[in-house]
Design a binder for these strands. Sequence first.
DNA 1: GATTAGGCTTCG
Length: 820
Amino acid sequence: MMPSTCAVSLQDKAAMPVQVIDGAPETLLPSQLQKVDLKYLQVGCDQANKYFQGTVILFYPLTKLGNGTEFFKILLQESENSCSRTSSINILFFGRLAEDCEKVVHQGDTMVVAGFNVAKSFSANEDDQHCCQLEVSEDAGSNIYIYTKPYLVTTSETASMPVAPKYTYTPLNHLKGGTIVNLYGAVKFFKPPYISKGTDYCSVVTIVDQSNVKLTCTLFNGNLDALPKIYKIGDIVRFHRIKTQGTAHTEHLSGLGLQLDITARGNKAKEKIREYNEQMQGITSIGFASLTFDGTVGAPIVPRTSSKLYTFTEEEQKTIEELRIWAASNLSVFGPTAKLSGVQPMLFFDLTCQLLGKAEIDGSSFLLKVWDGTKCSYTSWKVLVEESDLEGDKVLIHRLRNLTVDILVYDNHVQLAKSLKVGSFLRIYSLHSKQASAGNQADVSYVEFHLHGGTCYGRGIRVLPENNPDVKELKAFMDSVILTESQNVESTSSMEVDGTFDNLSYQSYSERCQQLSVTVLTDHQHLDDTALNTILKSTVPQQYRIRAKLRTFKPQNLYQSVKLYCSKCNSLQEVPDGDDFDLILRDSAVTAPNPEVHNALWYDSAVWDAANQGQRKIVVHFVKHDELLQEPEDTLIMVEGVTLKEIRKLSRRFKCIIPVKSTKEDLELLDLSAPFLLQGKIWHYGCKQCSKQKTIQSLSSLAIEEQPSWEPTEIAKVLGIEPLQYVFVMKFTLDDGTGALDAYLFDYEKFFQIPASEVLTSNLLQEKMEMIMSMLCPSGTKLDDLPWLECFIRSYNVRDGMEQQVCYQIFDTMVAEDVI
DNA sequence: GATTAGGCTTCG
């Protein structure tokens, strides 16, 4: 190959059909050669001494024809756009020329084709492609000159390249339909790239320039990066090779020899060419390229592009700055951006944020957990999601839970949302902050964040690069937030007992806290914690997972926490103490036993004289089974005339004891202030309000059963008694630093793993419960040093006369096993 | 190898 100098004539190089020359084409071409204009190119014209010059837009793979001849095809765009609607033409290479050319040609090269045949094109189906094609081969004496990128220079090369770019830019008021043009404009409106229903990404961009004429461009590309990187209204764009379609279009068809061609392609083609909405529009055509610049006046002029090669001159810098200045005063660039702290309900706004977590909700909705370093001034909703479905750093999400908002994106945005990487910075356009409040609590409202389906108003999501100035600013702010936050964590951790936390990461600290939780959830583990202040502001009823400390509890005397509860009338009552029972027993002992009711079919009766107690007689009725007495430990007895001391003694021996007294006709239960059944240390009471007592004879139905189990519930049932249940009722004052609330614990056995029915009669169980409470809430301890409790609570309304009150109840929670 | 969308807020 010849050295790349300019002082070489074409004739000297004629022996080499494909030449690569590093220089400007005009300086090398002999004067006798005439440049042809596509406008005047026709089949049959004499093409001797003619050459065509264009830019390589596209080339196809080298192939072999049926006869074995090498074949290569490129698309050349006329270097100086003649404003005709045909600006490009196919060049077909045959034989050695095809091979040689394929080896050296690059997209963007300028090519001069001399010595060609003109033939009718069978593949020119684009509106801007010429109906003819140029055929070149060695046999035809063709010469190809390739000028490597004389018009395409990078900014760094600008200084050393004396060749000025030849691009011309059409002002928007000078646009004609059906042309391929280069444009500058300020972005007045845009839709961030979204996945179209076809095969490409689509982005709609409306630009405007100093002529105040706007043009809406519909841009397609299979490669997301090839679409303009517009981040906000007011950005400046430069489009190369954009095709216009519009009103003036049909006028230009005449005289170009295209009318016939279109007719030949039928009505469908006509339909396609017809303008949309009688408006000029821009559309991507082959070779479309764009540069995007920040629209801020005075900001560095750094083009955003995926292309490594692009022209860029000082003159263009001037154009951009002029457009910036014009746009600043003529374009409303105040986008509806907002920080979370400034979010108002019922608003559409653009949010710049970082993605912390994501989760698929269903086919048409997707959850994004984001933050922007500020705290939403409204209570924002939390979308329930299985923890296992949530992608992201759960510790970080938990840590930033008060600064994080949940956004649901719908329909067409789901696919894009799925592809987002956790940690990336996003701008979410036209995000809807929707106020929601539930029913009777209109004053307690919260904000939901939706990115509705569709692309109206530019609704969509765009990933911002890390070097974006807004992202840089956001990151710096977030770093300061994290630092402040972690200092708070440090100060908390340094108070921890062993003092070894100080150098641990937040994650270790968090894990340690997790371990230190003295309670565990028995369900709902997948739910996120909700801050107490959020709960206090939220509608009722709802359920939450919380993490809080037990500041104090009531009653402090733990025996007072055990109550009797009727699940039928929801009443709670104190557990009568032994003295009450003793009095009732003494009272009933006054009534003499009735010997007439002794020894029935289903029980045997035995009478004793109470030692040293005068007239008092003790009667024990042994309930039989299958007409036989059972072993004492399986036996139900009914007793008359006993004292508390005696009945306790008996209850150690017999499985079940029913205290009774005699009437004239039968035996009957004592007053329901007394237990209707004693089983070991457990005394069973019935609800005075709900019980409808039946006769003692009803017990016989149980006695005849094959294996009478003497279950208290069954005994109660046949006797018409509504049994009361032992429950722990306590009030926990919980505090998580954001707020405090009183939550009731209403527990039969689960929370403490101690049956409420047994605790009053067991010193061991009482000690155990005291120990547990001293673990949950050690007395004389500062809040910071208290252990964490993981709890599940529900809110509910309680009507007290005219007043309605919100209450909270702990459930599905138990004391951790290692605490017990 | 054409098609996609064609600005103008919401089911959730």
